[in-house]
Computed example of a mutant assay.
Amino acid sequence: MDFSSVWDLVLKNAGQTFYTVTGLPFTYQVQDDVVRTSRTNYRLTKRDFEKAFERMPLSGPGPLNDIVRGPSYVFAILNKLL
């Protein structure tokens, strides 16, 4: 799967409930290629998701700490969609 297909899935699944590794539920909305979750005001950009996608598959969000903001949310979304 290429990243444009993954990003399409991110867009299509906005509003659905996702869960962090620790079980915290959240939803998200996308506006202008920026994801905002219901649990934080972090700006999670399309580029953040692309950088994380390049490292997938992963067993948890830890390896994303150094490359994206909100790694728990980015991981939870990608892990569920992939």
Rank of each mutant, 00 (worst) to 15 (best):
M1R: 00
M1S: 06
D2V: 11
D2F: 03
F3E: 07
F3Q: 02
S4M: 08
S4V: 05
S5R: 15
S5Y: 07
S5P: 01
V6C: 14
V6G: 02
V6Y: 01
V6T: 13
W7H: 03
W7M: 06
W7L: 07
W7P: 03
D8A: 13
D8F: 05
D8N: 13
D8E: 13
V10C: 07
V10R: 11
V10H: 07
L11E: 13
N13V: 02
N13Q: 04
A14Q: 14
A14G: 07
Q16I: 00
Q16A: 12
Q16S: 12
Q16T: 03
Q16Y: 11
T17A: 03
F18M: 05
F18V: 11
Y19T: 12
Y19G: 01
T20A: 04
T20F: 01
T20E: 08
T22H: 06
T22M: 03
T22N: 13
T22P: 00
T22I: 00
G23W: 10
G23Q: 12
L24E: 15
P25M: 11
P25K: 12
F26V: 04
T27D: 02
Y28D: 12
V30T: 09
V30W: 07
Q31W: 10
D32E: 15
D32I: 09
D32V: 10
D32Q: 11
D32H: 15
D33G: 02
V35P: 02
V35Q: 10
R36H: 14
R36Q: 13
T37D: 08
R39I: 11
T40C: 15
T40G: 06
T40Y: 12
N41Q: 15
Y42R: 11
Y42E: 11
Y42F: 14
L44N: 08
T45W: 09
T45Q: 12
T45R: 12
T45N: 13
K46R: 15
F49P: 09
E50I: 02
E50G: 03
E50Y: 10
K51G: 03
K51R: 15
K51D: 14
K51Q: 13
K51I: 14
A52T: 05
A52D: 11
A52W: 04
A52E: 06
A52K: 09
F53L: 05
F53S: 08
E54A: 15
E54I: 01
R55C: 04
R55L: 13
R55G: 01
R55W: 08
M56W: 03
P57S: 05
L58R: 04
G60M: 08
P61C: 02
P61R: 00
G62L: 08
P63R: 04
P63H: 00
L64F: 04
L64Q: 03
N65I: 14
N65A: 10
N65H: 10
N65M: 06
N65G: 05
D66F: 02
D66Y: 05
D66W: 01
I67G: 01
I67C: 04
R69C: 04
R69F: 03
R69I: 12
G70E: 06
G70W: 01
G70F: 04
G70D: 00
P71K: 03
S72K: 10
S72V: 02
S72E: 10
Y73F: 13
Y73D: 08
V74S: 04
A76T: 05
A76E: 01
I77K: 07
I77F: 09
I77Q: 03
I77W: 05
L78D: 05
L78G: 09
N79R: 05
N79H: 14
K80A: 14
K80E: 15
L81H: 09
